[in-house]
């Protein structure tokens, strides 16, 4: 964990919002924080190098960007197989997230993937392929039925 000083917190507070759509957007951000534009750019790049900022990018709404079908797929994987399978999943283009999770005893599928496809058929086929290629028979496709909330975390 990294200790963040108040000035960096003020910078991050601005950057976790939406960057202004104007020719010099970082100049406005710098003015609000009370630092120079050059210094702001320096701090952004430094915090990216340190991994505090994971990425600086446009965050899309997947459904509206054409990835209409998203599902969480949870797989039961033996502990000694988890790293090998996890890395296989990670290499798959349609898999956006892959985590090994601590799960309760009534939910015995420990490896979680988020899968994004353009159709239900594509999704089912992909999951079937993953299952067959990796020899994983025990899995659940846990599709979303309703979005109650989707926002970005405000840390500061």
């Amino acid at each position: 964990m990294t200790i963040i000083n108040d000035q960096d917190k003020a910078i991050l507070r601005e950057l976790q919002g939406d960057l202004p759509l104007e020719p010099r957007p970082f100049a406005s951000v710098a003015a609000r924080v009370g630092v120079s534009e050059e210094y702001l750019m320096q701090r952004i790049n430094a915090m990216m190098d340190e991994g505090i900022i994971r990425r600086f990018a446009a965050i899309l709404r997947h459904q509206k960007a054409g990835y209409t079908v998203n599902a969480m797929v949870a797989w039961k994987v033996e502990p000694e197989q988890v790293d090998r399978i996890g890395m296989k999943f990670a290499a798959c283009e349609q898999v956006s997230h892959c985590y090994l999770r601590e799960v309760p005893s009534d939910f015995d599928k420990n490896l979680f993937t988020m899968v994004h496809c353009r159709s239900e058929e594509e999704l089912n086929l992909l999951v079937l392929n993953m299952s067959e290629l990796l020899g994983l028979e025990d899995y659940s496709i846990i599709s979303s039925e309703h979005e109650y909330k989707k926002t970005s975390m405000k840390y500061f």
Binding site: Q16, E50, G51, I52, I53, A58, S152, M153
Partner: peptide, 20 residues
Amino acid sequence: KTAGIIRRVGAVLDARRLGF
């Protein structure tokens, strides 16, 4: 942005690095 395809443009922070 108006069409809702872009949710926002900005930084994605690493929760763990921030101690979260």
